[in-house]
Design a protein around this nucleic acid. Sequence first.
DNA 1: CTCTCCCT
Length: 649
Amino acid sequence: MEDEFAIQSFKPTLSANLAFQRKLLPIFKYRESLLYAIETFQVTLLHGHTGCGKTTQLPQYLYETGWTKEGKIIGCTQPRRLVARSVASRVSEELKTEVGKTCGYKIQFEHNVSSETKIEYMTDGSLLKEILTDPLLERYSVIMIDEVHERTVNIDLLLGILKRILLKRPDLRVILASASANIQKLNNFFYEQDKINTNIISVEGKLYPVDVMYLENPTENYVNTAVETVLNINSSYPSGDILVFLTDRREVDECVKRIEAFSVTTPEDLPMLVPLPLYSGLTMDEQLRVFDIYEQRFRKVIFCTNIAEASVTIDGIVYVIDSGLCKLRIFNPYSRISKLIRVPISKSNAIQRTGRAGRTNPGKCFRLFPKNVYDSLKDESDAEISHTDMLPVVLFLKSIGLRNINQFPFFVPPPTVHIIAALEDLYFLGAIDDYSNLTDPTGFQMVELPLDARLSKALLSSATYDCTYAMLNIVSVVMAGDVFYRPARNHHEATACHATFITEEGDILTCLNVLESFLVRKKDMKWCKTNFLNYNTLNHASEIRRHILPYLQRFRISPERRLTDTGSSKIIECLLQGFFRNVAHLQDDGSYKTISGSPVWIDQKSTMNNKNIPWIMFTSMVEYEGRAFINGITKIESKWLEKFYNRKK
DNA sequence: CTCTCCCT
C-alpha cells in the first residue's frame, strides 16, 4: 500500500484543545484585530479555515462591542438553510437566550426573529430577496457573507450589490469570509477598482494533520481503485472510518454493492466493513444512517458524492479517498440545454475534501491520481455564474433598475451570450418589453415569485384559463422534484403503485394527481411509503404551495378559480404560456425533435415513454453523453400551438 | 437511457 502512494505531509497546523469554550476557538486571538479592522475599513476580508469559529463568534464580538446600539442589526449569510438555522441556535445557546430573541434566523418557509433580534443568520438568497424591499440594506450595520469561496451565483450577486451599496453607505461594514487563501482578487475588486478600503485578516483553523498520498501512476478506473483502496486500508491501517468521494449515485451504489459482497467473506481478524451510501437523492432516514455509531469490530465506509464536501459533515472520519472528480451542470446558452459532465475538481476542492479526515483525529487522504495531476489542477473552480442559466440573474438585475446589465459590477462577468439568451427568454415570456424594461405587472410579479420563470408565467396566466387552483398545485410539485420513489429492490412493486396515479395527459397532471391525493390524505407519511411516493418531495411541494398563496392574494389572483368541467386542456394550454419553447414533435423513426430542431429523447422515468404522442411539451431537459433527455412530458395538440405562435406574432 | 448540489 505504502509503495503505491508517494507520501507527502499536509498542513501540520494542530490545535490539540477540543474544549468548546468560546475563548479557546482560534478566532478569539484575533478578536481585537478583527474589531479594529471592522471599525477602520469598510470591507474586511477574512480568510479562515473550517472550525476557526468565525461564523458563530464574529457576529457576537460585534454585538458585544455595540454595533447594534443604534438600532441596526448584524446580518450573516450562509449558502445553506440548515446551517443558518443551526448556527442561530448555537449562538443563542452561547448567549443563553432562546432562538428568535437576541439572535434569530430567516430562511425560506421559516423565520424566527423578533423586534429584539440583533444578530440575524439567513441564507444568501434570503438577503438578496431583501434587496427588493430595502435596496440599501439599511437595517444592517454589518453584513457578513460566509463561504465566499463557494462562489455560487448568489454570492457573486451579493458581492456586486454590496459594492454598489458601500459606495452610497460609508457607515456600512462588510465582512467577506472565505476558506480560500486566494483573497487578493476580492481586494482588487473593492480597493483597486473603487477605492473601498479593505483589510485582510487570516485566521488559522482547528484541523488535525492529514497525510496526503498520491498514486504513482494514473488509474484507468477510479471506481475499482477506490474499492481496492478501501480494502487495503481495512487490512493494513488502524481503526477509523473511511469517506470516499465519487461523482454520482450510480458509482456510489455500485461501490456499496461490491463492499457488501466482500463483507460476507471478511476474515475474522479484520474489521467488518459497513458500506453506506450518501447522496442527496436518498431519503432523510437513509442519509442519517451515516451518523450511526458502530461497535469497534465494524468500520464504516461512506461512499458519497459532492454532498460531503461542504453540506454534510461527519465526525470520526480518519481516511478520505478522493477520486479527484465531480459532476458539474453546464448550461448551453444556444440550445438552452444543460449538461451534466464529470470534471476534475480544483486544488481548493481537493484540500477541502482532505480536511474532512482531520476534524476529530489526525487522518490520511488517498488521492486516486498522481501528484503531477494535482499540480495541474486549477486553484479554484470556475464561479457558477460562468456556466449557468442567467435568466433569474437578469430578471433580478432588471428589478433593481439596471437598464443595461453590463452596468452591474460583476466580480466576474458572465459570458455575453448567456446574458443575451436570458434577455431573449425574458422577452418572449413577457417579463421585459421592447425597451428591455420590466413589464408591469407580469415582470414585477415574476421577480417576486420564488419559482422558475416559466412556472411563474404559467401561474400568472392561470386566471385567464380559470385554472389557478390546479396551477398552484402544479407549480409547487414541479418545483419540488420527482414525486415517485423507485427503489432498485422492489422496482416492479413501485411501478405498479405508481400506475394508479398515471393520467393519460402525461407527467405533469400525474404529479398534480399525486400532490392532491397527498394533501387529501393530510400528508400521511405511511401512505407515501406504501405507495412508493417521495415524502420529502411532496412535503416540500406543500410548503411551496403554502408559501405562494399569499403572493396570489397580493396579485389579486383568486386561488379558488378552478375548472368546472373535467377537461384538462385549459390547464395544459396555460402551462404552454410558460413552456412554449419546450415543445417536441414525433418523427417518423419514433424519435423526437424540438421546435428548434434538436433531437431529444424522452427520459426513461417519464410516464410518457414509448407512447408515441405526436406533440409533447416538456418541463426539463438534460444532456447526457451527447443526448438530450426530456422529462415532465405532457401531451399537447398542435392546434394549441398554432394558435399560440400566431398570437405571439 | 441517466439524473453533482444548493436556493428565493
